[in-house]
Design a protein around this nucleic acid. Structure first.
Lengths: 244, 244
DNA sequence: GGACTAGGCTGACTCGGGTCAAGGTTCGAT
DNA sequence: ATCGAACCTTGACCCGAGTCAGCCTAGTCC
């Protein structure tokens, strides 16, 4: 994600949602103009985060959602009485941070920037008010959460009873798809997260991630140079994912 | 779940939500009386399902949510191009089936009864209408989904990098907690699902589930007789879950 | 430029849990 | 009472991936 022109969504100070290139992915997608305008009015100037900086901290009370404008973040949970951290997921531009906190009104995990990132704060109480008078926005929010739920379930399937190669293939294909939806290349992108983050997310040791990436490269499926990744054969990766 | 007096929620024909013992868990929880009445009017007579019968089928278009009244069900996905099925989760009385289908308007997985069960159908379009005039219901729905999201994330943590014993301990403790919330015993309940279902859900072979249950029993942590389970030491199970 | 650090790669060893196979139990149907 | 199917248990074997250890590279700070 170093190549900033690859990742759309940078909202320069003073511009609004309609000038943002994330339509189609963001929560603001598909909304009638006046709804968008009022949602827009809610959003402060995007807030900058430095690499490693926490946007939300596990355990703190919930009161705002965030929309990722640019850059990427990871969600990290430290399960009770466990010192090992677990990377629950990654956020890309256009994605909403904090949906899982609405129910219990407290944040179940921390969210940390993987690189320089910009996020828009969306105070939940005011979003709720807006929703009351705005069926479309409300519906949009519900559908967003539902999709989130579904993708968590997909992730569960990916972890359950799959080999290291299948997990990694699934992970890379998923990332590829998400970048593609955001107007970036489906074949070439930066991995903003470390091998360790990927491993934690997939339930693998970081050494295994490294080894499997190497194997994929030797098989001509991908090309890796540090964090820059090129997918050479989507079909090959799909084949691995669907093996057995 | 054979002992029907253990599992509340049976709504005899003619009675309504306010006569149902699932207040406090169900979506109808916490709603003002008139909201509850209008929601109630939406619900048909609970529909009976026999063991093994499908409530929804993977791929079919989505248009209704279901509230589990009594009995239990499993959600089963067959990932694309994979013949192996994966048990995504289990539904107990008071839980809502179908939330993950709202977004894409199609059902990502099948839902099958594990035993005789009753469910109330809740047509989604009409629920939406109701939500428009009813902030509390709307909020309740959102929070319900959010909690669902959170519990999926917890499940992810449970699967990722945990041993078979930890997974099973976590699973049993989770079930125990859910039964407890429903007014059943936290220590003794029926496993409506087979060892194979549990294994699929936890990413383990069914033989492993069997072995680990046996080990737990030998250690005096649980008592298993077929599907009837008694938890003898919640602390012991917690200790296993939090090991390392 | 040099040194320090975080992150990444690779090899050797070990072990948890998957797989295969055989036998036992439970329960419903006839 | 008998049969069969589905489910569960247990043992033997083996492989994938975790752990530990050592080394390399890139980036950052003096």
């Amino acid at each position: 994600m170093t190549a900033s022109e690859q990742v759309p969504g940078t909202r320069t100070p003073g511009t609004h949602c309609d000038a943002c290139s994330l339509h189609g992915v963001c929560l603001t997608h598909d909304l009638p103009e006046e709804t968008q305008a009022s949602l827009d009015a809610l959003l402060d100037q995007p807030r900058p985060l430095k690499r490693g900086q926490a946007l939300v901290t596990q355990g703190e009370p919930f009161d705002t959602l965030y929309l990722v404008r640019s850059g990427s973040l990871k969600q990290v949970a430290r399960p009770l009485g466990h010192e090992a951290e677990h990377v629950v997921g990654f956020y890309l531009p256009g994605e909403a941070v904090g949906l899982e906190a609405i129910g219990e009104r407290t944040c179940p995990a921390s969210v940390v920037a993987l690189e320089t990132a910009f996020v828009c704060a969306l105070p939940y109480a005011r979003l709720r008010e807006l929703c009351q008078h705005n069926t479309t926005l409300n519906e949009s929010l519900l559908r967003h959460m539902s999709r989130e739920l579904r993708s968590e379930q997909r992730q569960l399937c990916l972890l359950s009873g799959r080999t290291a190669e299948q997990r990694l293939a699934g992970f890379l294909l998923g990332l590829s798809e998400r970048f593609h939806q955001r107007g970036c290349s489906r074949y070439r992108f930066q991995l903003a997260m470390s091998r360790g983050d990927i491993g934690s997310h997939l339930g693998l040791a970081l050494e295994t991630v490294s080894r499997v990436l190497g194997r994929f490269q030797r098989q001509g499926l991908v090309q890796v140079a540090n964090r820059e990744l090129t997918l050479l054969s989507l079909e090959g990766l799909h084949a691995i994912l669907e093996e057995r």
